[in-house]
Design a protein around this nucleic acid. Structure first.
Length: 572
DNA sequence: GCCGTTTTCGGCCCGACTGTTTTCAGTCG
């Protein structure tokens, strides 16, 4: 059992307990434990061995024993019992928006409904209205929720959500009654997957703002409409929430609506311990509830004895403790990024020529690109044969003689074949300045075999970067099974950098692994995987991932100029 | 089930909106 599987059992136990009407705080303890185990990078077997699980905040004696039992036997009694008593499809009813544990339990126990299908039929025939807590509106709401489940998974990629959010926010920010406004929520925290768009405004006329919001042409359907908060479904299929507060309340509201939920819970707990009450409207001192004014988020953090915590870090993954000690890292910024690795051209599946890509990168202020077209094994992308490589290198040499203050570096996205051998021989590899190795086939391999394949591939001294280390495509393809701890250890041993592939479809290496990789001594490098001039901008998604992964300028090799980068890679 | 410069018992973040109520429970974030 790996951490992910253990976390799944804890999470499911939490859901089942909730459904059975268990104490809400016990339920939370299980949810919490699942989250802790999921984000744990240490070998859980060792923690169990040394009985060190109880040292983790949120894991006590009982949960530590449960986790040990799951790791040993694959399950716990409590879970098996719950699992046996609740039909599989009943659990699925919880995924309908507006249907929570209480309603699900009632429908199942009192009405004998065991699936979403049965529930839908009952609502269509209006057989539910009249039951306690259920009326006509509830039936409509459930049907709308079921429709939504059928049509739309309820989540989208960061780049898609960001596009829609900017589109709405651009207009909202221009309305005359809006004083300050910002996109908050998981977009501001740069999560790779977004469930809804949160926009916050400060204003003296919240009702007017709400009216205007629900009447926007982007709106498909109004979900909620109140005086301070409204929720709509956009035509793009993404939910968008708008909250309005006064300008004095704005910093507190911005912090609150940026989240994460877990970060907020921790912050409120901290406020309480210091004799304050914290909510989205302010910070209130003592029994008198005297409000403490803060001009911005920085002031709010300061009042609670914390340095400013960048939004990307607000996941309750140790950022509050670090901020209390003044030990937050100085995160990498756009200005620290000198150049752009992992750029494709028309030599393989890119849409633009090398000169055009160089020009586009230069106009964004970057000092170099690393051309990294596919090697021959990737037939579908028109991978380069050795002759193509020699031709490309001549073109790059000629281009570099012409360019002033900008350089094109000779690189390749080299396939690691299924047995771990490389797609080009060493002689050809020696003609590149930077070799980025990657997996593009045989994704279904067992974990041990895949790990061995990658480790063998990056052990070749010509390989300098491991590109998109897990091969995931967000919301489309799961990462291949691989022991990342071993891969990271090998990358450190062989001095190979891990790519943070900044294509918003990938964002791979995942931010959750960046901090661990850094602690192990690994270096990261941001590559946009650009197949067109527009996609060079993907670098910025990579910077966000790096920031979210606690990385500083020093951890990310893009801070070097072209000469130093090539020199860095060839010193070993 | 967890946790402790208020505590080993009694708390556990807090508010908006909706729908079904006649003062509030459920859901959501």
């Amino acid at each position: 059992m790996d951490n992910h599987q253990i976390a799944n059992i804890l999470e499911e136990t939490a859901v089942l307990l909730e459904l059975m009407g268990e104490n809400a705080f016990k339920v939370r303890a299980y949810h919490n434990a699942a989250r802790i185990v999921e984000s744990l990078h240490d070998d859980i077997a060792q923690l169990i061995e040394r009985d060190e699980l109880v040292k983790l905040k949120g894991i006590g004696r009982a949960l530590a024993d449960h986790i040990a039992e799951i790791a040993r036997s694959g399950s716990i009694k409590e879970y098996d019992k719950l699992r046996a008593s609740v039909p599989e499809d009943v659990i699925k009813m919880l995924s309908i928006p507006g249907v929570g544990p209480k309603k699900t339990r009632y429908l199942w126990k009192e009405r004998g409904i065991k699936s979403i299908g049965e529930l839908e039929i009952l609502c269509r025939r209006h057989l539910l209205a009249g039951d306690p807590g259920f009326g006509e509106k509830t039936e409509e709401k459930i049907l709308a929720g079921i429709d939504m489940l059928k049509s739309f998974a309820g989540s989208c990629r960061l780049d898609e959500a960001l596009g829609a959010a900017l589109d709405v926010h651009k207009e909202v920010s221009r309305w005359p009654d809006v004083i300050r406004s910002e996109i908050g929520g998981s977009i501001r925290r740069c999560k790779e997957i977004i469930h809804d768009i949160d926009i916050l405004v400060s204003t003296e006329k919240p009702e007017k703002i709400m009216e205007r919001f629900i009447a926007m042409p982007q709106v498909e359907r109004v979900i909620q409409h109140g005086s301070k908060k409204s929720e709509v479904m956009l035509k793009s299929g993404i939910q968008c929430d708008l909250r309005a507060v006064s300008d004095e309340e704005y910093p507190f509201a911005l912090h609150y609506f940026t989240g994460s939920k877990e970060h907020n819970v921790e912050m409120r707990g901290r406020a309480k311990a210091k004799g304050y009450k914290l909510n989205e409207y302010g910070l209130f001192k003592g029994a008198s509830n005297k409000s403490v004014s803060c001009a911005d988020e920085t002031a709010l953090f300061k009042k609670l004895g914390l340095e400013f915590i960048p939004p990307e870090l607000r996941e309750n993954m140790g950022e509050i403790e670090a901020a209390a000690k003044g030990a937050l890292p100085r995160l990498i910024e756009r200005k620290d990024v000198m150049g752009v690795p992992h750029v494709h051209s028309t030599y393989t599946d890119g849409k633009a020529g090398i000169a055009e890509m160089a020009d586009a990168a230069s106009s964004l202020g970057y000092k170099y690109i690393v051309i990294a077209d596919h090697s021959q094994a990737v037939r579908i992308a028109g991978g380069m044969k050795p002759a193509d490589v020699r031709h490309q290198h001549k073109e790059i040499d000629a281009l570099n003689r012409k360019l002033k203050g900008f350089r094109v570096v000779k690189g390749v996205e080299l396939d690691i074949l299924s047995d771990g051998a490389l797609d080009f021989d060493d002689e050809l590899l020696s003609s590149f300045e930077i070799v980025m190795a990657a997996i593009h086939s045989g994704f279904g391999m067992p974990e041990a075999e895949m790990t061995e394949r990658i480790v063998r591939g990056i052990a070749n001294p010509f390989v300098k970067v491991l590109a998109h280390p897990t091969g995931r495509l967000l919301l489309t393809r799961e990462p291949y099974a691989v022991d990342l701890r071993r891969v990271i250890a090998a990358a450190v041993k062989y001095d190979v950098a891990l790519e943070i592939n900044a294509h918003p479809m990938r964002l791979d290496l995942d931010w959750r692994w960046c901090k661990y990789a850094k602690e192990q001594g690994a270096k990261m490098i941001i590559g946009p995987d650009a197949h067109s001039t527009e996609e060079i901008r993907h670098v910025e998604f990579g910077i966000w991932v790096a920031r979210k992964g606690w990385l500083t300028k020093r951890d990310v090799l893009n801070n070097l100029n072209a000469e130093d980068l090539v020199r860095y890679f060839h010193k070993r």
